[in-house]
Design a protein around this nucleic acid. Structure first.
Lengths: 254, 254
DNA sequence: AACAGGGTTCTATAATATAGAACCATTTTA
DNA sequence: TAAAATGGTTCTATATTATAGAACCCTGTT
């Protein structure tokens, strides 16, 4: 299996675009032909094609060519695919559609998790949150999913020494949390079993970037009467697949 | 004279790249073929070519395609060509080489002009400035070159009601300055005839952006003994040409 | 006026992009 | 489990088109 077929005309277009630099943002047809040893007529056709699609511009006065603004548009799309929110948004919608529960995307800020995106359940009884809403990381599924995959030194810093007990289920102290996070790391996802709020259950799964670091998590949250112990595994599976897909798109490689 | 020749293969490559959006940053070969009504084999060759040059990436696990990082590089080149400092830098060097006087690039900030780039004369007696140096706009060639091309309402705001007299040549009051700016606008460049500093003369010429607004100016400054009345016209001509070239590269159209 | 430089248009054909088919791998379906 | 479907990759003959050479047009210089 060699390098595969390459279309000469397209390669030539790319090589022409690569002739332009910060030092030489504008070039003449003849200059391009000299550099690439291209026939003038051939190069002209290529430049005209690029020009037609906004990937090249030609100054009407000087007739010099320069790279076109549509390259900014294409470059911006590359940038946006690297932005986690953009990457996760369609996936969050998909998970919400399949579970009909509220799906969040969250990141860690200090000892708290912050929701940076969400897709809400269509059911009347559901968790009310706003983007920007914060909760302590240690008692939420989404927060724990991030904490579990942090380096140990970082973990300790992100869990307060004194925990607030929000419910009877809230984990008791820092030591218990850190033991629990070991389990989460093994399972690959975290469950908030009414630890943050009575009557609410949540599953959270971690998202990794291209360097292998955990950078966010995605979660499904809903009333305990709907988020039953029987239903949780299915949701957890779906969520893990979805988190993996987001991670993959961020350049994560196992 | 129609639209000129367009190379089909290259058009197809561009159309493939344009299939990718923020909502759908990744696509399958089959999806691309369906959208563009392309033969699978043809599209494969095109994608492989783009891939080889970094304009496309393919995820080894899922085999989905996505836009490649080299589009960021090309987009960055477009951005940089729109950045005034980058654009002006080689031209400033060129002017300095031809005049062997200190050349500045300056922008307006409030009522002051700020130097944002420079190229210094090689002669031992020369104007000492640093990037970031500020002077009142109304008594410098570079400042006046900008003021003169501002809308009238803006002009008034950029000239203090009370002027400092730096030298015997400093213009006397706001009214005199605004009259003088009318002349500058007609001439197309401004001269500081020892108004800011005794023994120093300076010529300034305006730079316009793609919207037609004056955004900066470029200047040649030197000791009066070298910047003689006889020499000024030559310097002014060179400077105006250079300012026009910078403007043109910023997308300015007369 | 002639020439040079530089972009644009035109056209015949050499070259190659293309499409169809086969192949390979993985996933889905019965 | 086997067969079918899906989806990417490779191969090849040829239809199509990208290509190169030449002519044309415009501007600037000698």
């Amino acid at each position: 299996m060699g390098d595969g077929v390459r279309i000469q005309a397209i390669e030539r277009a790319i090589m022409i675009m690569n002739c332009f630099t910060d030092e030489e943002p504008e070039l003449r047809l003849q200059e391009i032909c000299d550099r690439l040893d291209l026939n003038k007529s051939t190069a002209h056709g290529i430049l005209n094609t690029l020009k037609h699609h906004g990937l090249m511009e030609q100054d009407p006065e000087t007739q010099k060519y320069r790279l076109g603004l549509n390259l900014l548009v294409l470059g911006g799309k590359v940038l946006n695919r690297l932005d986690i929110r953009t990457v996760a948004s369609p996936i969050i919608k998909d998970v919400c559609g399949k579970t009909d529960e509220t799906v969040h995307l969250g990141i860690l800020d200090g000892t708290e998790v912050v929701y940076i995106d969400k897709q809400e359940s269509s059911q009347s009884m559901r968790l009310f949150t706003a983007i920007g809403t914060r909760y302590p990381a240690y008692c939420t599924g989404i927060g724990k999913a991030i904490l579990a995959f942090l380096p140990i030194e970082d973990q300790a810093k992100r869990i307060p020494d004194q925990l607030n007990r929000f419910t009877a289920n809230t984990l008791k102290d820092k030591r218990e949390v850190m033991e629990h996070l070991k389990l989460v790391k093994q399972t690959g996802y975290a469950i908030d079993d009414e630890e943050n709020m009575e009557g609410l259950r949540c599953v959270g799964a971690p998202i990794f970037n291209h360097t292998g670091k955990v950078v966010a998590a995605v979660s499904v949250a809903g009333p305990s009467i709907r988020m039953t112990k029987e239903r949780l595994p299915m949701i957890a599976d779906l969520l893990c697949e979805s988190a993996e897909e987001i991670s993959r798109r961020l350049g994560y490689k196992k």
